[in-house]
Each structure stands twice: as C-alpha cells, then as structure tokens.
Amino acid sequence: MDHDKLLNIAVEMGCQLMASGAEIYRVEESMERLLLAYDLPTAEVFAIPNCIIASVNTPEGHPITRMRRIASHGTDIELLERCNDLCRHLCAELPPLEEAEALVMGLSQCPRRHAPWQVLVGHAIAAAFFAPLFGGGVLDTLGALLGGLGVGICLLYGKRLIGSNTFFRTVICSAIASLLSLFLVRIGLGRSLDTVTISVLMLLVPGVALTNAMREIMAGDVVSGLSRTADAILVAAAIALGSAVGLGIAQLF
C-alpha cells in the first residue's frame, strides 16, 4: 500500500474539516480513524486551530510525518456534514486509495453554497428580527434590516479592502454598523438608536468563537479552547471599540 498517499488523503480530509469549522477533537479523531482503518499499526494526529500534524509508522517501521498549516477560515456547516459523512463512508467501505483520493479532493469543489444575495438576505433578516427581541417596534425592525444589509455587504465584499485581520475587520464593521444605525435613526428609520445599533451589532458578536471555545474545553483540548476564548474576547473588544466611534459622533451632534 502507498502510505504516502494515504497520509496525504487523511491530511487533506483534516484540512477540509478544519476549514469548515469543526472542533479539534473531530478533526483528530476522524483522521486517526481513517488512518487506522487502512491497517496502519499506529497513527498520531495533533491539531490546533491553524495547524495539523499527522505521523504514522509503516508496517516496515518507517515513520512518515506531515504537517499542514490552515489559513484562517469561517464556518461552513454543509461542508462539515459532507466531510463527516465521507469519513464514515471511507472507514466503512475502504475503497481503493485512488478512489478515496478523488472523493476527498472533490469535497471542496461542489458543496451546495448559498448565493451571495442569499447570504446578504440572511444578514438582513437576522438583524431585522433581533430588533423586536431588544424591545424595538416595526420602525426599528425596518432600520435594522437596512443596517444588517449594509454590514452584510461590508463583511462579504470588504475583505479585499479591509484585509483578513479579524480584529481590524471587526472594528471597521462595527464602526460602520454604528454609524449606519445613527444615520438611519436620524432620517427617521427607527425610533431607538440603541435598539437598532444592538440589532445590527448582533451580526458581529463572537457567538461562534464562544461556542467553539466551550466545546474545545469540554472535549479536553485546553490549548485550542484558550486560543478560541482569547479570540472571542478580542472580537468583543473590537466591537466595543468600533461602536465607540458611532457613539462619539452621536454625542457631538
């Protein structure tokens, strides 16, 4: 058996899992299962949020190790579910390596994705329906809808302009959110500035980072858990910084 190829397949699978926002234990366990399923005596996998290291011993006693770095990524549940299903399928069926490789390489190509306009609508709907939860009326809902649309556009298309630094991106987006809400409320779309701003800011809150951090700690991966906790706190601080811009300007006029 070609152990190099097997290791490459497993690492690619882990990489896709990580890119879809899976927990560390899921990445480690899936890769380990895949490697052991193909009759390797041992398989060691270590992962942290942006790096995977996998090492195997061939039956002849020859060690092979591969390390792969993963760029920052978002959350893509459809990809996660497909990876999970494929891993289960591979471990159960054990197809020839060429076939397995084709399947794993095809993972990122054709999963169902929402079109950009659908994602924008998602942002707008989410922001709009947060307004009643924070005590807003119909007018506030309308304002939050437009604000959410604006922030959605920033998040989706602003990546090239703002850069990929999460902290900085969140500062800019929340500043835009607070300024946009201020503007909307001043022209009469929305009664309460606080409600509209909070509803729009809810699109940026580190709910994902918080949930992930908690799940990592629950699974016993303290290093990854702490790094994600730090991520959540940083994002929260960035939101606070950005919204201060809008608040400061609101005080001036």
Binding site: E81, T197, G207, T211, S243
Partner: peptide, 20 residues
C-alpha cells in the same frame, strides 16, 4: 455534528447589547 445547531441557536442569547 452537533456544532451547527448549538452554534446558531445560542446566537440570540449572546450579550451583544451588553457590549454596546
């Protein structure tokens, strides 16, 4: 995987208002 359901369902409760 549980992640999807937990992630989205917890979002309304995250204290965005508190930060603001």
């Amino acid at each position: 995987p549980v992640t999807a359901y937990l992630l989205v369902a917890l979002l309304p409760l995250v204290p965005g208002g508190g930060i603001y």
